[in-house]
Design a protein around this nucleic acid. Structure first.
Lengths: 219, 219
DNA sequence: AGTGTTAAAATTGTATACAATTTAAACTGG
DNA sequence: CCAGTTTAAATTGTATACAATTTTAACACT
């Protein structure tokens, strides 16, 4: 038995207030509440979050490093935002990376990671019947997280996490409506069985199919 | 005739002092002069670059967003740096992305971009005979830049640019010693001809071969 | 009324001051 | 001499003040 802490209902990463504000601003940008191309006023953010300009500016710099705002010297920072085209770009890029990720993960997965994957897939099967959507989404994320980790490429993992975050708030529609759950489970099963068989090529193909079908459901 | 401004000898992007300092600090981290895991003292950086803590901290936040430092609240920022493993990770990831990039670029390249590519490849042939290494490296970068652009995926382009930058300063050895130049030219020719033929699959394979051979030369 | 110029207001960039926290040093008792 | 505690120094986090620049508004002139 391994620990799968992401399964617990009150699982939350601990964050500082600065990180919290950062995430809020990012989500405002991604979701379009801060319109793309619009100048972001520092004073407004200060008032909104009860901080002075210094920490707000530092947060904006970090967001700039993450690419969601662009700063022009002496003129301010501007929301970059995600156009429909940019969202598609992200989606296709993430797909490419995930296929490669599965390939590498099957080649490199460690024993304890394989145990976690098995256990997670068992949970997935069980909860698919339960219709507890929140839990299922969390399990699916956990399934992905294990695969991201098992690929043993920290940068790849970082990108996939980032793109998951961006797409989560960029696309308004739910990825997995309840009636699709059994289908999604079967797609995951194909991936999981490739892990069991140690067949990287089969895994990559199964991942490609899963992502393609997810894209169709997304539209 | 199209403008290929990256060919000129004094081609430099205009940067503010803050961006310049940022790049210097990043290069210090990548090249290992700021040891991975070591705490970075703000005051030292202030003295070194003649700035007060406020702009230095903003620069560090942007670098944090870019992933080269990690910040722990109340304890400081720590250089993340690139271990040999991390460099390999980046290299493999970049290769995957470049292959995909070539594939998309061949499918989506626009007429004026194709003109630029042709012109750049002609220059490449010409200067390979000249042994002007500086110019050749710039032309090769330009060749890549056109392909990055032609793929029409801004995030993909951003990642490839970033990884090129990181690997440029992370690997101590020169990628293209003079005696390899004719070989490299032929590898580029295969890619270029796939563009001419509009054969995405052939382009992807040619890119894969090129990257594989580059890797061998790198070791 | 429209255009170009000048002055005022607003906004960003930087430096400094102080509070909060951590790290290093000094000290005490065994 | 060493472990644990207390105190001092150093470092980070935040707020504020002022300089530099840009944006907006007012104004004069044709």
């Amino acid at each position: 038995m391994v620990t799968l802490d992401f399964l617990s209902n009150d699982y939350k990463e601990k964050k500082t207030t600065a990180q919290l504000v950062e995430e809020k601003i990012e989500i405002d940008i991604i979701s379009g509440r801060l319109a793309p191309g619009k100048r972001i006023n520092e004073r407004d953010l200060c008032e909104k979050y009860g901080l002075s300009r210094t920490p707000i500016r530092e947060i904006l710099r970090r967001i700039e490093g993450n690419g969601l705002v662009r700063s022009i010297p002496n003129r301010g920072v501007f929301a970059v935002g995600l156009s429909p085209q940019a969202v598609d770009d992200l989606y296709y890029l993430k797909s490419i990376l995930e296929v490669q990720c599965v390939r590498w993960a099957i080649e490199r997965i460690e024993e304890h990671q394989m145990e976690m994957l098995t256990e997670t897939f068992d949970f997935m099967q069980f909860y698919t019947l339960s219709n507890d959507l929140g839990k299922i989404l969390r399990i699916n994320d956990g399934f992905d997280a294990i695969i991201y980790d098992a690929a043993h490429n920290r940068e790849l993992e970082a990108r996939l996490r980032r793109y998951s975050f961006l797409l989560k708030y960029a696309s308004s529609d739910i990825s997995y409506p309840l009636n699709y759950l059994p289908t999604v489970l079967e797609e995951h099963r194909a991936i999981y069985e490739a892990f069991v068989a140690g067949d990287a090529q089969a895994g990559a193909e199964a991942a490609e199919i899963h992502l393609y079908k997810t894209m169709l459901r997304r539209k």
